[in-house]
Design a protein around this nucleic acid. Structure first.
Length: 453
DNA sequence: GCGAATGATTATCA
DNA sequence: TGATAATCATTCGC
């Protein structure tokens, strides 16, 4: 403040003739004493203060006069200095450095989650990663996966929409086209640069009529940058939170097992029929699994799960499953009788395939004679032998039943599905092949050629 | 409410 | 990669 009188003094003796809009006593250079000078300054300030009350033309004229006034630079210097030492210094003390590290972390996270960066299916990578937490690939799984992706895409859209808003906001304010500032990449920063340039131009323009120092402009630019960073940060933070919540919900839903629904009776029957008819080798091929899945209206994974569970539980407690095995044997026998009674062609819509090493299976015959009788022998089904073998296989089955005393006899029936199905190593062997019907090429209890375990 | 049954998940192995 | 074994969590029948 003590500079003011000195600065004022340095210009005090300068005449102001030829400047319209100034008081006459200033123009004729008569104000040479201290009081006169103070009054001159006071007049100038008064004019500045009242300039807005005047008409536009008059104000323009006076503004122009002021701009051209020789004392103006000195006056503005003083005022700028005053501002610098008061308001701006206080503001400057409150300024903080933007937390760049945090912003970077947020950026990285948004990129990893597939929210920012190039769009590749709306964060499918993150969704896939989340889905990878589970090995199951059921329909529910894929449904949840797509649900997760849909919600992530929604978040992504909102995020970009908000970022674009910054740009639109600046566009409405006017574009200067002068890209002096090269901030960080991104919509927000681009908008920030445009807005900053606009404000800078505005301040430069205004600096002609009010005291604005380059330092103040610089400071203002810094403030704008920080404000934009803050907005960006808030947006990114909110987006991250949303993604985290979404993800945690998604993972929680996986951790707490999904609602399990028992398969319907028909599906269980179909699976059991296959299992017991392929007891010698209850490992359905991929094709068979697909057929079973289709027939049971479940997924292939569920079929795999079911067979996995069934094998292990059967092996663990064969005695418990004897009854069940007999029931399905009875069904098989009944079906076989029906098949033989109605003719092989009538009940055999298609020739059972021979795909896979685990014996043939054709779902169109899932409960019929072909599949079941064939598997009783544990041999791969030969489609060409269908007609010729049907009757003999039925006879074989009848023979087995008669030998074991019939499937109605619990004790005897238990011999039908002998625990010999599992060999000493815990693997599966031809348990369904009673000694009387053992293949000539194989000895009793021998491991079947197509037994994988 | 309890226990068995059952579908799903996970770790491990060949 | 598929199978096994153990286990979990839910459903179901009593």
């Amino acid at each position: 403040m003590d500079d003011q009188p000195r600065v004022m003094h340095s210009h005090a003796g300068v005449g102001m003739a030829g400047h319209p809009g100034l008081p006459q006593h200033m123009q004729d250079g008569t104000g040479t004493d201290g009081d006169g000078r103070k009054q001159d300054i006071g007049d100038i300030l008064q004019q500045i203060m009242t300039i807005t009350d005047q008409s536009l033309d008059e104000a323009q004229a006076r503004k122009h006069a002021l701009n051209c006034h020789r004392m103006k630079p000195a006056l503005f210097n003083v005022l700028c200095e005053i501002k610098e030492k008061t308001v701006l210094s206080i503001r400057g003390a409150q300024e903080e450095e933007p937390p760049d590290a945090q912003l970077m972390r947020l950026d990285n996270m948004l990129l990893a989650e597939g929210v920012s960066g190039p769009e590749k299916g709306g964060g499918s990578a993150a969704a896939a990663a989340a889905a990878a937490a589970s090995s199951g690939a059921g329909s529910d799984n894929s449904a949840e996966h797509s649900d997760y992706r849909a919600k992530l895409t929604q978040i992504r859209q909102i995020y970009h929409t908000e970022l674009e808003k910054y740009e639109q906001m600046v566009s409405k304010g006017g574009r200067s086209g002068n890209q002096n500032f090269t901030g960080n990449a991104g919509y927000g920063m681009q908008a920030c640069n445009e807005f900053t340039t606009h404000v800078m131009n505005l301040l430069r323009e205004q600096s002609r009529t009010r005291p604005i120092s380059p330092k103040e402009i610089e400071r203002m630019v810094g403030i704008i940058h920080r404000k934009f960073s803050s907005i960006q940060m808030q947006l990114k933070q909110s987006t991250c939170e949303a993604v985290m919540i979404l993800r945690s919900r998604f993972l929680d839903a996986r951790q707490v097992q999904r609602k399990r629904r028992n398969f319907n009776k028909q599906a269980t029957e179909i699976l059991n029929e296959y299992f017991y008819s392929h007891l010698s080798n209850p490992y359905p091929s991929e094709e068979a699994k697909e057929e079973l899945a289709k027939k049971c209206a479940i997924t292939v994974s569920q079929v795999s799960n079911w067979f996995g569970n069934k094998r292990i539980r059967y092996k663990k407690n064969i005695g418990k499953f004897q009854e069940e095995a007999n029931i399905y044997a009875a069904k098989t026998a009944v079906n076989a009788s029906h098949a033989s009674a109605h003719g092989s062609q009538a009940n055999s819509p298609s020739t059972p395939n021979s795909a896979g090493s685990s014996g043939s299976f054709n779902m169109s015959n899932s409960g019929d004679l072909f599949m079941n009788v064939q598997s009783f022998n544990g041999d791969s089904y030969q489609g060409a032998q269908v007609g010729a073998n049907v009757q003999s296989q039925v006879d074989t089955l009848r023979h087995v039943i008669s030998q074991t005393g019939g499937y109605s006899d619990g004790l005897a029936a238990s011999q039908m599905y002998s625990p010999q199905a599992i060999n000493a190593n815990g693997g599966w062997q031809d348990a369904t092949t009673p000694s009387s019907v053992t293949s000539p090429t194989e000895g009793p209890g021998s491991v079947h050629s197509d037994t994988s375990n």
